[in-house]
Structures are given as structure tokens and as C-alpha cells.
Amino acid sequence: MSQIEQQLINGLALGAIYALIAIGYTMVYGVLRFINFAHSDVLMLGAFAAYFLAPLSERVFGPQSITGAICVVVASSALCAGIGMLIELLAYRPLRNRPKLAVLITAIGVSLLIEYTCQHKAVFKAETKPFPRLFPSQDFRFGGLAISSNDIVVLLVTVVLLGILWFVVQRTRIGTAMRAVSFNHQAAALMGININRVISFTFGLGSALAAVAGILYAMKAPGIEPLMGVQPGLRAFIAAVVGGIGNLPGAAIGGVLLGALETFAGGIPGISNYRDGIAFAILILILLFKPAGLLGRVQTEKV
């Protein structure tokens, strides 16, 4: 019995990370209507930023201090926010009024560029690096249940970030502008909204979330390498679509759902070898019954 509860906890801890990544995909899709393939690489850069910043913070705050960890996370996300905005400025903005598919290919190009540059022996190298421990971790036992402090941190951080994000999108001026841009570019521009600024902000926010997700992911599995973002990135992309792409709560729900599905599928003998496929199969089923995702609205085409 405790096995099912244990799996639920495992699934939630994994799904929370997917949710954070999925939100980045969905936000960019909301304002620009294309899938930012480079998002998963920003996640990897976030983990590497923390990898290089951790020794620095250790010197200032001492080993495994909470303050140090927070500083590392904030600095890494700020760095990644900058990288995300830079990618948008250099690679996507020149193609703003071009076919969406051209932007998509550029995004794939940017993704390959980051991955291969980071694998180069003069940059990070291809090998797996041990991710430092940012703060002390502990495993708690409740009867038959095991919860690692990392899992609790992941859940807490996700919930807090989702709350902040909700506030930003719903209650601030820039958030309102984001919603306006996602609703209609031209109308928003006519209302005096600086579209470039809003899009840039969206990329920054999404990339910062990706960086946090990357660090949480690296804490969960402390071996980082330049392709570490590909797999969670793909999963999060699916989660975003399942939730209804462009829909923020949808992305969060999709992420948690996918995490739970994967965890349960992994735990069943005879099915665990199909784990990669099962998650997809169930998601396809969901999409067949809800063609615009769980929370997405079906748009009737106007004639």
C-alpha cells in the first residue's frame, strides 16, 4: 500500500520539475507561437552556471549553506535570463515577421549550436561532471515512506515560483502586457505596448525558470553533461502541449501528470521497459479526446 503513496511522492517530485520547464515553453508559445527548442539547453546552462558558481559561494558563505545556495540559484537564473533574452534578440527577433517554421528551424539550430559548443573540449567537455551539493540533504522516513529533503525543496520551490509567476502574469503591468501580446500582437502594439520589451521579458522569465529547473534536476541527479536538458526538455514540451500549449496552469498540470505517469509506468515489471512509450501512448489518448489539451480552448476557425 505504501508503495502507491511512495510512487505518488516520487512522481510529484519529478513532475514538479517538468512543470517548471513546461511553463517556459508555454510562455514563449503564448507570445510568439513557436516552440523554443533551445529552452532545454538553457536548462542545462543553468545547471552548469550553478556548477561553476558553487565553489565561489562556498568560499564566501562556507560549505553547504542555505544562503549560499539561494545566491547561487538567483545568480544562475539571472545569468540564464540574460542568455534567453540574448538568444531572442540575436536569433529570433530578426525573423519576427517571417514564417513561424523558419523560426522553428532557427530554434533547432540554436539548440544544436549550444549543445555542440558546450560539448567541445575547450568549453564543458562531453563528460559527466559531479554536481556539487548546494545544501545539506537528509532523508526522512514516515513509516514505510521515504522522502528526501531534495524532493521537499523541489516541491516548495515549484509552488513558490508558480505563485510568483501567477502574480506577475495576473497582477502586474508587464504581466497584463504579456497577456495582451499573447492575445493579439497588433492590437497590443496599437495600445502602446512595447512588443519587443514584452517578448524579451517573457524569454527572460522563462529562461530563469528553466535555470531553476535545471539546478533542481541536477540536485536530484547530480551528474551533469551538455545534453542533460534534451530528455526533460522533450518531456516538458509534451507536458506543455498536453496541458494546452499557451496555458500556464495547463503546463503545470501537464508536467505533474507526466511525472506521475512515468513514475508509475517505471515501477511495473514488464512495463518499465516500455516506459518511454507508455507516457507517450497515454498522452496521445488524452489528446485524442481533448484535441487542444487539457485546459486549452478549441479555437473554431473563423471564415
Binding site: 508559445y29 516552440i35 514540451f237 509534451i238 502541449v241 498536453v242 500549449i245 516500455y274 518511454d276 512509450g277 507517450f280 501512448a281 498522452l283 496521445i284 489528446l287 485524442l288 484535441p291 487542444a292 489539451g293
Partner: peptide, 22 residues
């Protein structure tokens, strides 16, 4: 058939991956 755009993309991607896993 009921799906469009990115939703179709994800479903076809999913089928491709399922074929690989099988």
C-alpha cells in the same frame, strides 16, 4: 485527424517514439 499544428506534431512524435521503443 482531429488535431492540428503542434498537437499533431506531438502525436506524430509520440507515435515515432513508441515505434522505436517497441
Amino acid at each position: 485527424l482531429r488535431l492540428r499544428g503542434d498537437y499533431l506534431a506531438i502525436v506524430s512524435l509520440g507515435f515515432g517514439e513508441i515505434i522505436r521503443v517497441v
